[in-house]
């Protein structure tokens, strides 16, 4: 992928993410037997929020919300520009850091608890993504995203358990049930987001749309050079993850970390070892 395509895609990623979010709300509603909001509802929300009076705690906190948006945007560009996959993963950590520091910087119990849980989300899913970068390297022979996208192999065939593991950790990265402890609206009222409002909440909200694109692009990588399969995988992952969101209840953070560390990572490692042994 050339820099220009990546740049344009990154630039429009909030729009793409917004549509995904709108679609998600419809799909989820239909699964529950509701009609759901219109597809453009996230954008209506966007414009309404822009109009709202901004109420902030202090400027540093508000600024960190904006930084979270910029950081996520930059992390997405790093991923799409075709560079090293591991570095793109660690850039995602960097962008989360802003949300976390912002969450910690106010004396709100909900925000502080939420920021801590945000870090625990990272503890849960990050090792899996690092491992999957290594696994993709094993199959395609390169760490470069552009190389993986032009690979002749289809990693999915070699890494079925890996794909399953990443699929199950998708809710953790996007903060959806059952792994939505960081936001947990009924419990800590949105966690680190709670103290943002108006334009500043808008920034955090948009950053979450960008994370959708980030996460689904990761799924796309599992199809390697076969881009049609990649699109199918994304659609499958999308429905699967909405189904999961609908049918499960929230777990606590220990269960989340334990599920990732004791079930998903071992699953991935078995796959990794078998494929490595087969290849050697």
């Amino acid at each position: 992928m050339s820099y220009w395509t990546a740049f344009i895609l990154t630039l429009f990623s909030p729009v793409i993410g917004g549509f995904i979010y709108g679609l998600e709300r419809i799909v989820r509603a239909r699964m529950q037997g509701r009609v759901g909001p219109p597809l453009l509802q996230p954008f209506y929300d966007f414009f309404k929020l822009m109009d709202k009076r901004s109420i902030i705690i202090h400027s540093f906190h508000a600024f960190m919300g904006i930084m979270y948006l910029i950081g996520t945007w930059f992390a997405l560009f790093v991923l799409l520009s075709g560079g090293d996959l591991l570095i793109a993963i660690f850039f995602h950590v960097l962008s989360l850091a802003f949300l976390v520091v912002g969450g910690f910087s106010v004396r709100s119990p909900y925000s502080v608890i939420g920021a801590m849980r945000e870090l625990l989300h990272m503890v849960a899913y990050e090792p899996l993504y690092v491992l999957s970068a290594a696994a993709l390297y094993l199959v395609t022979g390169t760490f470069q995203v552009s190389g993986i996208l032009h690979s002749k192999h289809v990693p999915l065939i070699y890494l079925p358990l890996f794909f399953t593991a990443v699929l199950f950790s998708l809710p953790a990265i996007l903060k959806k049930s059952p792994f939505d402890t960081a936001e947990a609206h009924q419990e800590i009222i949105g966690g680190p987001e709670i103290e943002y409002s108006g334009k500043f909440y808008e920034a955090v909200y948009t950053a979450k749309w960008i994370e959708y694109v980030y996460a689904f692009f990761f799924i796309f990588l599992f199809a390697g050079g076969n881009h049609i399969l990649g699109a199918l995988l994304i659609i499958f992952a999308f429905f699967f993850f909405n189904l999961l969101d609908n049918v499960t209840a929230r777990v606590n953070f220990r269960q989340m970390v334990a599920f990732h560390w004791y079930i998903l990572i071992p699953l991935a490692v078995i796959n990794l070892m078998l494929i490595a042994l087969w290849r050697s």
């Binding site: 009076r53 901004s54 902030i56 540093f60 709100s108 119990p109």
Partner: peptide
């Protein structure tokens, strides 16, 4: 961020 001050916004205490 140390020096940024958003004007035209209202300051509140944390939500409790």
């Amino acid at each position: 961020a140390y020096f940024v001050h958003f004007t035209g916004t209202d300051r509140v205490y944390e939500y409790t």
